[in-house]
């Protein structure tokens, strides 16, 4: 389990992370979403001990980060952090020597999956291949906790799918995974939870299915004019357009739909919302879209 509470990181006059709190339960895949500069990478840096937060704490399986945590924690940064002058095999040897839980068979399997040549120097690898090597290093110790910053960045669509499958398999085996991505489709496919950040704050956090359920919209069409909606208008966001009204039902879509029917609506639809809709709503600053 990963638990973050009250995390705040300020760089001079920039508040990069503002009192962020969320939890990722064991065996869960959590997507961290946000626009550029929302604080995702800084959050990861604070989690990994690369940056010292002004306040708050991060716990992995109930414990604060120590060197020993890295025996079970794998990390792949946004930009592959590799030695350009070393070969792929050198990197694996480094992992073997420094990681007590290094799994040679698993690493060779991943090497074959990503079709990496062990003799090649890293500076000769493409960006996607470097990303793949970074992932292999993060996974080489069969970690039970994985932090991945844009893990599929630079990979072709086939390899992106392979990476997501690997992550889903790891989570099925009990690993707790947190990953960021700008490709919401990847998060939607791999993650069961999501954290959305805006301007350093966590604005949405929870299970994707529950968030979707809570954000369903009821669209009601009336024959002549929209009647007085009574208490509905006070309880939720209402968008009126001609003879139609959209009500953001806050998890009570079925009840709201029934109320609209009772008010004389000639057509009532309950609209499911995609993760992308949730994201766009969450990061909407009032003028972007």
């Amino acid at each position: 389990m990963i638990a973050i509470s009250g995390l705040t990181k300020r760089y001079k006059d920039v508040l990069a992370v503002d009192d962020a709190s969320f939890e990722v339960p064991t065996g869960s895949v959590c997507g961290l979403l946000g626009r550029n500069g929302a604080g995702k990478t800084t959050t990861f840096k604070c989690m990994m001990g690369f940056a010292r937060p002004q306040s708050g704490e991060v716990r992995f399986d109930g414990e604060l980060l120590t060197p020993k945590t890295f025996e079970k924690l794998g990390y792949a940064p946004e930009r592959p952090s590799l030695y350009g002058w070393m070969t792929v095999a050198n990197h694996l040897e480094l992992a073997r020597r420094s990681q007590p839980s290094y799994d040679d068979a698993r690493t060779r399997e991943l090497l074959a999956t990503f079709r990496l040549d062990g003799r090649k120097r890293v500076k000769r690898l493409s960006k996607g291949q470097q990303t793949a090597l970074g992932l292999i290093l993060a996974l080489s110790g069969n970690p039970s906790l994985l932090i991945l910053d844009e893990p599929a960045s630079g990979l072709d669509p086939v390899m992106q799918r392979v990476v997501l499958d690997i992550l889903i398999d790891a989570a099925t085996s009990g690993a707790t995974i947190m990953l960021s991505s700008h490709q919401i489709g990847q998060i939607d496919r791999a993650a069961d939870r999501v954290v959305i950040m805006r301007d350093g704050k966590v604005v949405v956090s929870g299970e994707i299915d529950a968030l979707r359920e809570a954000s369903r919209v009821v669209e009601a069409t009336f024959e002549f004019v929209i009647p007085d909606l009574g208490s509905l208008a006070d309880e939720m966001r209402v968008e009126r357009s001609g003879k139609s009204v959209r009500l953001h039902a806050n998890g009570r879509a079925d009840a709201v739909a029934a109320r609209c029917g009772a008010l004389g609506a000639v057509g009532v639809r309950v609209l499911d919302r995609s993760l992308e809709d949730l994201f766009l709503d969450a990061v909407d600053d009032g003028g972007t879209h």
Binding site: G49, F50, P67, G74, S81, Y83, L94, S98, Q99, P100
Partner: peptide, 14 residues
């Protein structure tokens, strides 16, 4: 400095 993500994520004190 450019590879601390590897160096500092080994199970050993910095």
């Amino acid at each position: 400095s450019s590879t601390l993500a590897i160096t500092w994520t080994r199970p050993a004190p910095r």
